[in-house]
Design a protein around this nucleic acid. Structure first.
Lengths: 189, 189
DNA sequence: GTCTATAGACCGATAGAC
DNA sequence: GTCTATCGGTCTATAGAC
């Protein structure tokens, strides 16, 4: 299906550019060029830039859904699943420090131009928190949602600082500390 | 000095708009209108938009420098100073949830268009971490910079999530938890 | 110092030939 | 389905009247 292929390439290019320069800074011309699709042809696949943005959010959501399914498949142990989440941020620290979090960036970018799309992107965080809360719940944590929120907030905050300071080591250090804490928890952690 | 006044109004308007819609989404026309300064007059005070952006970074830096000086003046107790920092985020939770962190937004926005300005904005975070580290150091914390980084990362991460999920309560809850932890620390906290 | 007019480039989006 | 040509609008920045 050549149609699907071009559409897919456009979404992939827009997704990549949304991370590198932000969606509002990425023109349709640049996206089309990066996707190797004729410039004016974009409007055959998407009737507006917002519709392309919505496809980008969908692609990111599916990407992170797949990641969580993989972590679930790799281990039944709730602690190991949470460790997989933290290690993913650790392993991507260089890119995250260079460009920031792709989801966080998408949320703040889209919220400014289209509240609906911003909320749509926010659901990726909501799904991640809900997933982590399941693991904390299985561990018998008294407030699983709070603990999950804290874990996701930690990776987000460290990513923001690593990005702002251009210091991937900061993010790696925080992830490693979180991993240690997950493996040897104290009360209330 | 009417000159200083207009220049100051332009910087104030640009600073406010950088928080509300992002600096790259704020046109010079909009900024001038918000500052009640004739549109084309902007270039008398700033020779480029980047120079105006640099003034915005300077204004934010001075704003947060003044905040820390106030917290230092209000108490000699290191714990109380750190609590002041956390309470400031808690008190501004509604605005932070609606628009995100002004510094974090400035950093990610400017880094994308001008790495130099992005690094300049990043120094605001660096100064905040250094300030918090002084308090942790006074408390005899074994790794004051790590602890300070963690505290700032916590507020940033909670702000990102509160903004993405449109949930100011999330940020307030995290700040209150952090305050409790500051007032009744455990080992390694 | 102040302001208008506008250049020159780029944007999202559309019309219509093929 | 595919692609070109282009419209109307907005952007940063400049030239120059007052």
């Amino acid at each position: 299906m050549p149609v699907r292929d071009k559409r897919q390439r456009l979404v992939a290019a827009a997704t990549e550019l949304s991370h590198r320069v932000g969606l509002s800074n990425a023109s349709l011309a640049t996206i089309a060029e990066e996707a190797d699709v004729p410039i004016g042809n974009v409007y055959y696949y998407f009737k507006s830039k917002d519709e392309l943005a919505s496809a980008v959010v969908g692609a990111r959501r599916e990407e992170y859904d797949a990641l969580r399914r993989r972590w679930d498949a790799e281990s039944d142990d709730p602690v190991q699943r949470l460790v997989s989440f933290v290690r993913h941020a650790r392993d991507g620290a260089d890119l995250l420090a260079a460009r920031g979090c792709p989801i966080g960036g998408l949320c703040s970018d889209l919220t400014r131009t289209s509240p609906d799309l911003g909320a749509e992107a926010g659901e990726i965080f909501a799904a991640t928190i809900a997933w982590a809360a399941d693991s904390y719940s299985a561990l018998g944590h008294p407030r699983p949602v709070d603990a999950a929120t804290r874990l996701v907030a930690m990776t987000q905050g460290a990513t923001v600082l690593a990005h702002a300071l251009g210091d991937a080591g900061l993010l790696r250090a925080e992830c490693e500390r979180a991993e240690v804490e997950l493996l040897a928890p104290r009360d209330g952690g």
